[in-house]
Nucleic acid binder design. Structure first.
Lengths: 148, 148
DNA sequence: CCTAATTGATATGAGACATAGCAATGTTGA
DNA sequence: TCAACATTGCTATGTCTCATATCAATTAGG
């Protein structure tokens, strides 16, 4: 008797792994946010930077990088891009660093990004009606700070 | 009076965003796991594949991809690599697909990966002593399944 | 039987990361 | 003061994950 190979649902012993669940959940949310931010023509990182500069006018590139866990080298093209598109302004504070601030266009974009992120979060919050979100956020913060 | 630019701790209005927390938490755990798996010379995806094949001998490449959310095109080099290193065996079941199984070397590696992942998870579980892990996992599953 | 779907594969590009090194500048402590 | 040292922005480069488009062979279904 031949065994035709029927499409199988695999037994998945890693679906219960915390790291794996985090990875998948993060990917889903990031994809959703990325799609939503398409309306402003910005990627999640870029939106995040606008929000952070908006809340910290005069901050410098390396401070942003530290706050976001992005290496100096990788901040360069991000800030350059946002500046070239007239979202950000740089003014020298040092011989080596620049105070960053939002241009009017940048502030407008920041506001839209903030609204989009609110709606994005609300959509997922609806899914998590039965979950203690305060505890969830606390747990994620703990994990993010690492076990050292 | 001059304002010297002192290293600042930025006010961070996005540190409370669920998506952002997920992203950071996931990055931290993945980095930790990646480091731990360095001892076997495997990356997290590869370890995951070994575990999944171990639990589902005879499964095929595209089933693995579906279970892990990895596109067919991206499975190709992964499976090819693990096969080339003699972790996996392919035997034809079809004119087009192959049943995958662990070689003895693959089974040995799978066991080590499993142990490493246990220790890895235990390390973070210690951090989350005050957290309802069952609820945490449920929440992450919900998020991963998306809001559609 | 013929159309549609599936499988593995190739090629290719985007994006998030990492490291190493460099020149200019700032900070320090002996 | 001034010689180490650290920081900043930057370039170059490489890896890894993920995406799309396309293909040929094979299989499944109406």
């Amino acid at each position: 008797m031949e065994k035709p190979h029927v499409p199988k649902e695999l037994h998945d012993p890693i679906a219960s792994r915390l790291g794996y669940l985090l990875r998948r959940a993060s990917a889903t949310m990031m994809a959703d946010l990325g799609e939503a931010l398409g309306a402003v023509g910005l990627r999640p990182v870029e939106g995040t930077i606008l929000i952070l500069v908006g809340a910290n006018p005069g901050c410098i590139q390396s401070e942003l990088g530290r706050a976001l866990g992005i290496k100096r080298a990788n901040m360069v093209p991000l800030i350059a891009g946002l500046t070239a598109q007239n979202y950000l302004e740089k003014s020298p504070v040092d011989g080596r660093s620049f105070a960053l601030s939002l241009t009017p266009r940048g502030e407008e974009a920041r506001a839209r990004v903030d609204g989009i992120m609110d709606a994005h979060e609300a959509g997922f919050a609806r899914l998590l009606a039965d979950v203690d979100q305060q505890q969830l956020r606390a747990a994620l913060s703990l994990i993010a700070s690492g076990r050292d």
